[in-house]
Design a protein around this nucleic acid. Sequence first.
DNA 1: CATGAATGAGAGTTCATTCAT
DNA 2: TATGAATGAACTCTCATTCAT
Lengths: 202, 202, 202, 202
Amino acid sequence: MGGTMDGTRQRRRGNTRQRIQDVALELFAEQGYEKTSLREIAERLEVTKAVLYYHFKTKEEILVSIFEDLTRPIEELIEWGRRQPHTLETKQEIVRRYSEALMDTAPLFRFMQENQAAVRELRIGEVFKDRMLGLRDILVDPEADLVDQVRCISAMFTMHAGMYHLQDVEGDPEDKRKAVLEVATDLVTQAHRSAGRSGTDA
Amino acid sequence: MGGTMDGTRQRRRGNTRQRIQDVALELFAEQGYEKTSLREIAERLEVTKAVLYYHFKTKEEILVSIFEDLTRPIEELIEWGRRQPHTLETKQEIVRRYSEALMDTAPLFRFMQENQAAVRELRIGEVFKDRMLGLRDILVDPEADLVDQVRCISAMFTMHAGMYHLQDVEGDPEDKRKAVLEVATDLVTQAHRSAGRSGTDA
Amino acid sequence: MGGTMDGTRQRRRGNTRQRIQDVALELFAEQGYEKTSLREIAERLEVTKAVLYYHFKTKEEILVSIFEDLTRPIEELIEWGRRQPHTLETKQEIVRRYSEALMDTAPLFRFMQENQAAVRELRIGEVFKDRMLGLRDILVDPEADLVDQVRCISAMFTMHAGMYHLQDVEGDPEDKRKAVLEVATDLVTQAHRSAGRSGTDA
Amino acid sequence: MGGTMDGTRQRRRGNTRQRIQDVALELFAEQGYEKTSLREIAERLEVTKAVLYYHFKTKEEILVSIFEDLTRPIEELIEWGRRQPHTLETKQEIVRRYSEALMDTAPLFRFMQENQAAVRELRIGEVFKDRMLGLRDILVDPEADLVDQVRCISAMFTMHAGMYHLQDVEGDPEDKRKAVLEVATDLVTQAHRSAGRSGTDA
DNA sequence: CATGAATGAGAGTTCATTCAT
DNA sequence: TATGAATGAACTCTCATTCAT
């Protein structure tokens, strides 16, 4: 589907592919995946529906391509985390970098959050779930106390949902992100310390 | 729509209404709201679609009725919380009772969680959002430090998502619920203490 | 999809199902299966497309139902033939009765003849092929001389194609049918006699 | 469309035109004319759809060109037959040469056989029909007994369908062809003799 | 209480074809 | 010679909903 090796070069003149992705994500996030029809996407772009099918094989593929293009950094982060020793420092760094990565892909993640049911039946459902489990496996120590496991899971969801739910709280977005990050870091740190202690005690 | 006062409502002879709600929630939770068609619901019940329309005016109304029937205790809880002084004790009790209430309506809440985009456009979208904001207003002190605000929001989402994401961790469900509750209580308590201190300091 | 045991009783008042089958076969035979759209069928019936889907699950199912309804006698004939000893008399009777059965379902058979490629990919493709092979196995003696095998196959196709290609020859249809039948019977008889002789010789 | 006088036409450099015809016939025969899309043809050739349009004006034209290129010998045969006296010897020779010509264009004839409905609406539909009628007019004596007319028509269809339906009978293809030819010749001969006799008798 | 029949709107998808480059 | 991009029309099919009986 066109282009040279270089992924950047889908822009010979009229970068339709990119524009489709942008508008699609916009509408998917606004109305949900199922509720958004290809007609709407095409209309907003002032092209015909068939154009969408020139650039993407199916509706699902539009979403897949957005997901893959935008979440590559996160995939790499998790890959990196997997190979590190699961020390407190690693966990803290993962949390810090994950928080940043989420910021860059906020609309997509809001979409994923709000359309889990729809996404679950799609090809990316599995991929997304695997990533979340990958992240969990890095942060959560399966030997730890149940409460500490919850703390780590909570840290993840704090980052996912936190920023979105701070939308109607006044303040600089970067400040909010830092606040969310601090809570998440706290949770992970508490979990780690408590686990360490109970390990010493035993 | 013809319910009687008592709790055993609609079992005069053929409790169809109840059965529709049960099957509908099952399918909505499994496949999502949009993906579930009335045909499917009718087929699984072995009745005709027209039967559904005898008991409910629209597809949306089926969901609304489920929501209203199941979340009345939560509504009352929030109503109660609103009228209490926003002390630490109140917050802790709200969290405790909310955690219990969630357990009783787990499938519905999982559904609401995973179908936010779809639900947002529905009549209950607004209602649900209002409740969440109501809960937030009880737990969160708008004067508090941003970090502490996040802690309280995090407490809410820990309860919502925590249990679902502990599904593939072994252990007694009630133990898990208590672990989740402990983390949520912790977060609220930390937020309250720190807010108190900074209030004193200032 | 309605109706009691009795297949005749799809006619409570407005026998739409039957009318769909009639019009569909008409158009399928006229224009071919692929070329005939459900829109056309619906328009000619002055109903909406959705009506077709109320009565039949898919376009293919419309054809399948026509096929099954119309070719039951032929199926039974072949079933009967299979159980008889493969004598000349049996073969002659099969040919005679097959010729009659074909007359009753002429439009369908013309359709099958002319849309083999389309039909092959459909569910009835297999069924139709099996029937033809079943008929062949009754008429053709696999031990016989190759030429005699061809004679029997030729008898079958004479009946299939013969009548259609006599359309622009003047004469009474029943006379034509009898002429076709005579040629087919001749071929089968020749094949049988010659086989018998060679059997005697050997 | 730019062919040179000689038979090795279009192989100057990249005999694309020929390759398109080959692949197209392959797919048409396999799946049917309507079911085969230009996209598929292009994909199997690893060229773009636009290439097809460089070489042929329409989808129909691809088929027409195949038909014209492959059936020229048959056209000439019929032309020749038309000019001969309609004696038994002529008929026998026509049958013999037609049987050979069919062998050389088996895939195309199988296609024509199985896609009559689709082809009927195309430009070659008329041409093909005319040829068949031409052949019929040579073989069939309109004054003859109806049964004898059927015999001649049967001879034609024996050749068309016979070989295809002998596919799963073991044996050398050339032997099969000869068997088919023998039956066809027989039919024509019987028809002629009987007609002669009845002519004499009358 | 319940059903069979029908509807209108719209979904995602595919097609043959065109045209500037 | 060839291609990438786009089009408009049509396709099969599904949906929530209505209504006379």
